[in-house]
Design a binder for these strands. Structure first.
Lengths: 141, 141
DNA sequence: TAAAAAAATTGGACGCTGTCTAATATTGAG
DNA sequence: CTCAATATTAGACAGCGTCCAATTTTTTTA
């Protein structure tokens, strides 16, 4: 899988049982071609750059559909908005609390030990690890 | 430090450089006496149980002040609301995605190894680890 | 203590993110 | 092509959190 084109995005959608409509292809293409963490409003802005063709409702419908079908993940780090992440391999995040920028940490090398047993009757759905960072700076007094 | 009373909450506030007003004491008492993760609206409900005396603006002002002064922490797990956590010792969380319940994981026993170096020019502000769990259940087809 | 200054609180308007609904448009099957 | 199923839409709406200017409370000063 080298380049992301609108055509192979359609295939990816089909493989996940999603009917590839224009809007869905554009939204998927926005996320996958950039390989970035984007918020819903950023995605809407990108998709409507040339001519407005996708409504807010469709952006949210589509992102939630992609989430359900596990085509993308959501990243909850900012209290005011969700980010959508086209990388579904196991990984974690640096979060720059000043700029709001998210950076991936590959999960490969990373181990978490000493976790207590899960409470009874529950199963793990996922593990989110977020390293919050800020630009090093001479602190104001 | 055994019991949390309104009187010793005032001391705690003073120790953190916060002027202990009625409203601030009630809000701190709500969080510390319960040792639970509460959202702003839950805190407002608790504080106004007997007679309404604290406005929404004050609840938010106060929680943000407590955060600044590092009296409490915020926990960002639910896209729709922030939880406030009176436990500032290093620890992490189980989050039941169905009930929304948060449970502490003491950081003591827990180690994270294999972290890549920080990006240049940034310093760590904190590490959040969230284990998302759901009640074990025969899955509907 | 009284008077003045500083700090905190307030209601309500507001903005933003995300959901919902009912109407319309598009798609796909036969 | 026709019909049914699916997707999209605009706009109303709801919830969380912020902001503002006016008021109240607290602290300072004398």
């Amino acid at each position: 899988m080298e380049a992301y084109t609108r055509d192979n995005m359609a295939d990816v959608l089909r493989k996940h049982g999603i009917n590839p409509t224009h809007q869905r292809i554009e939204i998927a293409f926005a996320l996958f071609s950039r390989q970035e963490h984007l918020s819903a409003d950023q995605i809407m802005a990108i998709v409507n750059l040339r001519h407005s063709e996708t409504s807010k409702a469709t952006v949210y419908n589509t992102l939630n559909l992609f989430l359900q079908r596990k085509l993308i993940r959501e990243v909850i780090v900012d209290p005011s908005k969700v980010f959508y992440d086209p990388n579904t391999r196991p990984h974690h995040h640096f979060y720059d609390v000043v700029s709001g920028r998210l950076t991936d940490i590959e999960a490969g090398d990373l181990t978490l030990s000493g976790l207590p047993d899960l409470p009874d009757g529950v199963v793990t759905e996922g593990v989110d690890i977020i390293i919050r960072v800020r630009p090093q700076q001479t602190q104001p007094a």
